[in-house]
């Protein structure tokens, strides 16, 4: 097929001008786009109200479709549970007995811990849950890892709050609409969580890799401290994420670092909870008084 004869619309002066102005408008559009992009990169907070509105506008669609999907999925997996139920039952019973022993030990340790803390007069505020919601969507078209939480500023969610599930840490809020918010997942490359190796207590840093796994780096130089199967938990350093929240389990070693898989898989968790920042004072933006100090 020969190519179309191009955009020249014949001899009409009016049509030619129209085409020319549309070309100019497109160049202007490109320039505006580049300026907006520069703002987004340099000051990510600049469009937060616009992003919040867009979240609110699309959240009902996502949540409605999510409900349909969950119902269908529930029927399928509900039927699957009956398959091989006797063996599963036995396994679960054994697991329960084992967990019961563990639970008694944990209770004793907790009591002892409380006594020791009281003796040290250590005051520690437990972070309060602000709102619970479902993870209903994600950025499945881009290399960044975001998820949509079905709770927003009406429920008390604010930008910057940490989000966790029962299984472990999910991420933190980056955009908030009235009834939906966008979460930066811990598997995103830009997410850095101060963490700790549970086995040795060594301080490490957990940074996302962008593909669902997490890279764990030790803060001190030396031998690779990780072993496959090691548990990584938050340390509470930095004041945003509360301490002792499970993050990930080490799956393999990679040079000086280790690759770990998050405990809370965003696609599988049923509820996610937004919490107050662990130490809000540490997170508060600098006031004018602080700025004056050198």
């Amino acid at each position: 097929m020969a190519a179309p004869s191009g955009p020249r619309p014949g001899w009409s002066r009016r049509a030619q001008y129209g085409l020319f102005f549309s070309f100019i408008a497109a160049i202007a559009g490109l320039a505006i786009g580049l300026v907006l992009l520069a703002f987004s990169i340099a000051a990510p907070e600049s469009f937060k109200s616009m992003k919040g509105l867009a979240l609110d506008a699309t959240a009902p669609i996502t949540e409605g479709l999510h409900a349909v999907g969950a119902t269908v999925g529930g029927l399928a997996s509900g039927a699957g549970d009956y398959w091989d139920a006797a063996r599963q039952n036995g396994d679960l019973r054994r697991e329960r007995d084992f967990m019961r022993e563990q639970l008694i030990t944990a209770r004793a340790i907790r009591q002892e811990n409380a006594q020791l803390k009281a003796a040290l007069k250590l005051r520690e505020e437990t972070p309060t849950a602000v709102a619970a919601g479902r993870l209903v969507g994600s950025s499945f078209q881009s290399p960044r890892r975001f998820a949509i939480l079905s709770a927003g500023t009406d429920d008390g969610v604010r930008i910057g709050m940490p989000v966790r599930a029962r299984q472990g840490l999910i991420g933190r809020v980056v955009d908030a609409g009235s009834f939906a918010s966008r979460i930066l997942l811990i598997s995103d490359r830009a997410s850095i969580v101060p963490a700790r190796l549970l086995r040795t207590g060594q301080a490490v840093i957990a940074q996302g890799r962008g593909d669902g796994s997490i890279e764990v780096k030790p803060l001190e130089v030396g031998r690779n401290p990780f072993k496959p199967g090691d548990l990584i938990i938050t340390s509470g350093t930095g004041g945003l994420y509360p301490p002792l929240v499970p993050i990930a389990r080490v799956s393999r070693l990679d040079g000086d670092n280790a690759i770990a898989l998050p405990f809370a898989e965003p696609g599988a968790v049923s509820f996610a909870i937004a919490q107050q920042p662990f130490e809000p004072e540490a997170m508060a933006p600098l006031t004018e008084k602080d700025r004056e100090l050198p």
Binding site: T58, I61, T62, E63, L65, H66, G69, L135, V136, G137, S138, S139, F140, Q141, S142, P143, R144, R145, A147, S187, G210, D211, G212, E265, P266, G267
Partner: peptide
């Protein structure tokens, strides 16, 4: 893109 897909990769 508002489909309720919660994926670990953006493929």
């Amino acid at each position: 893109s508002t489909l309720p897909i919660v994926a670990q990769t953006g493929w």
